[in-house]
């Protein structure tokens, strides 16, 4: 049975317009001739040309990409282990602590996470001389930490809905648990691993606040460069950059989603 409320439908449609209108305007005005990003004056690709001549942006993008790949991969390992322990191990010592530490980063204000990690790094350096300055390494550690929480949530929901009979059958037949994990569990949760990694990757690529705290001189990530540009006012080359990021992310997410639906359908059969 379906309840129909025209008001709800109208608000929902407006809600989708609200979600997409700013993004569409970003894309449209990246092709604008004029420096004004709100008045259309003709088609041009010059802001893209300008973007690819901007070495500061290109260097920052490369640094951000390296950090995102490294931190997402670390987050995938830590988050998957945490999810596996929380869903499959029943009661164990530290379960409560692990549960809290996996869910808290999702809502913790970024300024708190950034400040506290920076103070930790500074204190550790005073005590044991590690991590020896701040930059790529410290940002990667910070991103891997909150990325792991997001990965854990994604993998947890997949593990909860997964039937355990295949794993039990393999164990009954005498397979070692590690083998069962790699041969049975891993293939089944592979789509969740892909979306978890992608989520940690995009979150790392996007983070401004935490990176600003734990970064050092000379290590500016892409969001840090964008933020300092945007603070001075709108600039069309940021629109061009935004368009490129939106197109790449949308393509990646759509391909991943289609792939996951197909493999889920396959598994259901």
């Amino acid at each position: 049975m379906r309840q129909k409320f025209p008001v709800m439908t109208v608000i929902a449609v407006l809600g989708f317009v609200f979600l997409y209108a700013p993004i569409l305007s970003l894309i449209v005005f990246s092709f604008n001739e004029s420096r004004l990003v709100t008045v259309w004056s003709g088609f041009s690709l010059k802001w893209y040309a300008e973007l690819f001549r901007d070495t500061q942006i290109l260097e920052a993008a490369w640094l951000s990409l390296k950090i995102a790949v490294a931190s997402a991969s670390l987050a995938l390992v830590i988050g998957t282990l945490a999810a596996f322990a929380l869903v499959r191990f029943g009661r164990f010592r530290g379960r409560m602590a692990l549960g809290v530490m996996v869910s808290a980063p999702l809502v913790m204000p970024e300024v708190i996470v950034g400040l506290s990690l920076l103070l930790l790094f500074v204190s550790m350096e005073g005590l044991i001389g590690w991590p020896g300055g701040r930059g790529l390494l410290t940002i990667t550690i910070a991103h891997a930490t909150f990325g792991a929480a997001f990965v854990a949530v994604v993998i947890q929901s997949r593990l909860v809905s997964m039937e355990m009979d295949l794993e039990e059958a393999a164990l009954d037949l005498g397979a070692r648990p590690l083998r069962v994990f790699f041969d049975v569990t891993l293939p089944v949760i592979a789509p969740a691993l892909v979306s978890g990694w992608l989520l940690a990757f995009t979150l790392s690529l996007d983070d401004l606040v935490i990176a600003s705290f734990v970064s050092g001189p000379g290590a500016s990530t892409l969001p840090m460069v964008i933020f300092s540009k945007v603070r001075l006012g709108v600039s069309p080359d940021v629109n061009a950059l935004a368009t490129l990021i939106i197109v790449i992310v949308s393509l990646a997410v759509t391909v991943a989603a289609l792939h996951i639906t197909r493999s889920n359908r396959h598994a259901a059969r």
Partner: peptide, 21 residues
């Protein structure tokens, strides 16, 4: 997916888009 897709694209750039609006 239409709800989640904007979340995947950059948070900073989505805030920036509102400056133009």
């Amino acid at each position: 997916m239409l709800v989640v897709l904007p979340f995947w694209t950059s948070f900073l750039l989505r805030v920036y888009a509102w400056i133009g609006f």
